[in-house]
């Protein structure tokens, strides 16, 4: 156990809250499982998932056996995964507070976003730091294309590096592109089968926790979403829209704004 995490008698301890964002299939749930596997023996962890249509992520993580099943909870997002982590974070905040209360004290709560294209980022009012996950199978160009999560998340993960030879991606070049897009912010080439990369990820979480407890870490906002498609969210060809304060359209939804 890390020092200075003595349980308080009354108010639940405020955990370090880490968001995990990125497109569907890039390995967010797997990354959370990896972090749990690496750190569950030394830190008290909790997990919240935000699936779009099922509680499959929560069930996957429970079945991975990396954490007590009760410490993994799913919230619904009303088909608006981006809203639930950015504009109206109410359901997620309540879920985090419940976890912190029920398992007081918790060291770290990991929150997985319902994958919403390349663009959804977490509100700094919900998470203290966020990881944005890409994978090599998405192609070497993705990192260069940028977007708020890629450019300004606290940590960018280029995942599934073990697949690079099969998809013809040059990992060092992809990482270098990402570092350029991120103006030097940290990029981690990760594979769950590469122990050294997993240890780097675990060390990043530990380091952040130290900063969080010392009060030296300030949550950053990567910025609002860029215009994007929702092909996966509502089925059929998506309409281009953005999620800034201006009006926009989802498939089958009237024009609306999210605040």
């Amino acid at each position: 156990m890390l020092e200075n995490s003595t349980p308080s008698s009354s108010a639940p301890a405020r955990s370090l809250r880490i968001g995990v964002a990125g497109p569907v299939g890039t390995g967010k749930s797997s990354l959370i499982a990896t972090v749990c596997r690496a750190l569950a023996a030394e830190l008290r962890l909790g997990v919240i998932t935000n699936d779009i249509y099922t509680d499959e992520d929560a069930r996957f993580l429970r079945s991975a056996g990396v954490l007590e099943p009760e410490r993994i909870r799913a919230v619904e997002t009303g088909a608006c995964p981006h809203t639930a982590i950015r504009d109206d974070i109410t359901v997620n905040l309540l879920a985090v507070e419940d976890l912190e209360r029920d398992f007081n004290p918790l060291d770290v709560v990991l929150i997985e976003s319902g994958g919403d294209n390349l663009t959804a980022t977490f509100s700094p009012a919900l998470v203290d730091a966020q990881i944005f996950v890409l994978d090599v199978a998405g192609g070497g160009d993705v990192a260069r294309k940028g977007g708020p999560g890629i450019a300004r998340a606290d940590l960018l993960v280029v995942n599934k590096t073990d697949l690079a030879p099969y998809v013809g991606v040059d990992v060092p070049a992809m990482v270098a592109d990402a570092e350029t897009a991120r103006e030097g912010r940290q990029v981690l080439a990760l594979s769950r089968s590469d122990a050294a990369s997993v240890e780097t990820l675990a060390a990043w979480v530990r380091g952040l926790l130290v900063e969080h407890r010392a009060g030296t870490h300030t949550p950053q906002d990567p910025g609002p979403m860029a215009p994007h498609f929702h092909a996966d969210e509502e089925g059929g060809p998506g309409l281009l829209h953005s999620h800034d304060e201006t009006e926009h359209v989802h498939d089958g939804e009237p024009a609306h704004t999210h605040h």
């Binding site: 919230v75 619904e76 997002t77 009303g78 608006c80 809203t83 639930a84 504009d87 109206d88 974070i89 109410t90 359901v91 309540l94 609306h256 704004t257 999210h258 605040h259």
Partner: peptide
């Protein structure tokens, strides 16, 4: 207003 941040968007 549906934009009121009380988590109403997850209800039908």
């Amino acid at each position: 207003d549906a934009r009121l941040p009380v988590g109403g968007h997850v209800h039908s």
